[in-house]
């Protein structure tokens, strides 16, 4: 597991599009490998994660691959790919591999960055003539949020027109849909047996709008932004 290193973020570090906003929201930042993350928003983060919280994971590693040879290439790299599109599978190193279509896959690092599948795949990939597996710059194109807690479904019902109830939307299921009128990828990945959780990936240029829309929808349930540290406790 990576260590949080207390740091004042400067422009050479990988920062989230939400950085300036989070500064004004009282975030405590830390350096975490090559990136700046919000370590903590308040001392209540741990409780918040269980009731309703949103964490910004945008600076954590992730990668994507697309093209007709992609499933074959990923399997060669030892990745277990989900059998069906719109399903996600946990890898041995903790990474989550989400199959977005027959050919397109998204790899999300585990939150502790204990493993490094997303980075390893990106590094071992190169463009080969006539071999159709192409890297997608997912760490830049998409922002990554994690929503969790008892009220997460009721809150998402205010911004997303898909039935996310536990019965209809199983753990590991993916919905690519409109969230607050922004196209996004929603992946159910419960924090643990007691706490429901969803990854939300959206266009990075839209994340400020999405963040504000979510906080507005969360207010009714006393939902708050949380830091990464509280998620790692679970």
């Amino acid at each position: 597991m990576s260590e949080f290193i207390t740091a004042t973020a400067d422009s050479v570090l990988r920062r989230s599009q939400l950085y300036h906003l989070q500064q004004s929201e009282g975030a405590q930042f830390a350096k975490y490998q090559d990136a700046v993350v919000v370590k903590q928003f308040s001392s209540n983060d741990s409780q918040q994660v269980k009731s309703l919280g949103v964490a910004d994971l945008s600076t954590l590693p992730r990668s994507g691959f697309k093209g007709k040879h992609t499933p074959q290439w990923l399997e060669q790299q030892g990745v277990t790919i989900p059998e069906q599109p719109n399903c996600a599978t946990k890898q041995n190193d903790g990474a989550l591999v989400a199959r977005l279509s027959e050919q397109e896959h998204l790899i999300l690092s585990d939150l502790a960055m204990a493993g490094s599948l997303a980075q390893i795949l990106e590094q071992s990939w190169s463009i080969e003539p006539d071999y159709m597996c192409y890297s997608l710059p997912r760490r830049d194109s998409h922002a990554w949020l994690y929503l969790s807690g008892e009220h997460v479904r009721a809150m998402l019902a205010k911004v997303c027109g898909i039935d996310l109830s536990a019965v209809e939307f199983a753990n590991g299921q993916i919905a690519q849909t409109s969230i607050a009128r922004i196209n996004g990828i929603l992946i159910r990945d419960d924090l643990n047996d007691d706490t429901a959780g969803f990854h939300l990936l959206c266009d990075s240029s839209s994340v400020i709008f999405v963040w504000q829309s979510l906080l507005d929808a969360m207010a009714e349930f006393d939902g708050k932004p949380v830091g990464l540290a509280a998620l790692l406790e679970n």
Binding site: P85, N86, S101, G161, T177, S178
Partner: peptide
């Protein structure tokens, strides 16, 4: 065919 039943607005 890829994403299942959705609102027509999608």
């Amino acid at each position: 065919p890829l994403n299942g039943l959705r609102n027509i607005s999608e």
